[in-house]
Amino acid sequence: MSAVLAEIENLSVAYRTENGRTAALSQVDLAIEAGKRLAVIGESGSGKSTLALAITDLLPNDALVEGEIAWPGLPHLPAPGRDIGFVFQDPGASLDPVLSIGEQIAEVAKNHLGFGWREAYIHACDLLERVRIPQPEAALRAYPHQLSGGQRQRVAIAVAIAAQPKLLIADEPTSALDTIVQREIVSLLDRLVSESGMALLFITHDIALASGFADAVAVFHESRLVEAGAADEVLSRPSRAYTRLLIDSHIDLATPPLIEGAQA
């Protein structure tokens, strides 16, 4: 048992609509362990993205939030960007189209690490190398439209880890990419998490993708947490019918893991 980074207690999120309230997340209890990989699995509309936004404190102003998120693993309340890195689904939409890639990474380092612009750019260059962007020096001056979808997502990951956060949240980071690139991004995330010791919250609707490298899984359905536990336990002996349904419809458990050796 490792240390708990964040403890979500009885968290509910709802929105006001024309016909009363619509629940986006209902009474969720979940722990995120420091340095571990937690896969959050569910269909669209199951509340998994709302969970990610709630953890990062990015919910819209009109959201009605109840419950609590405690951070025993941090000396202070987390700040987005500094303690929590966030990777969005579509890097084409989350990167600013008119600013250079270097600036978009460097501004995070400058803001949270107290760097000057020069240091921040050097740091950005190192980060581009870490996410395996070829010719990082040249890439600093490039703009998002000059990169491929996979490279853009690598840049978005570099942005997210620029301030060395304790938690990296990746919200469907591969759904906008093709299959081969998906595997590359997943293995990149896997490697970065192993190297830095940060925790990863990996949100996906693809149970196969999650089963490959998660330490723990949490299954969401219709705004509720259905089942949570260690990955091999939940995936091999699901206790809920819905989880079994997901597993049956998505993978044959004989399928080799996506990343070799990651399941050990």
């Binding site: 960007g81 929590i84 989350s94 600013d96 501004e107 995070v108």
Partner: peptide, 21 residues
């Protein structure tokens, strides 16, 4: 748009989000 949320997720100051992005 998504990228406005993405800038907030980066923890930038509101001033910088408004003016620079």
């Amino acid at each position: 748009q998504d990228f406005a949320l993405a800038q907030r997720a980066k923890g930038l100051s509101r001033r910088r989000i408004v003016l620079r992005h």
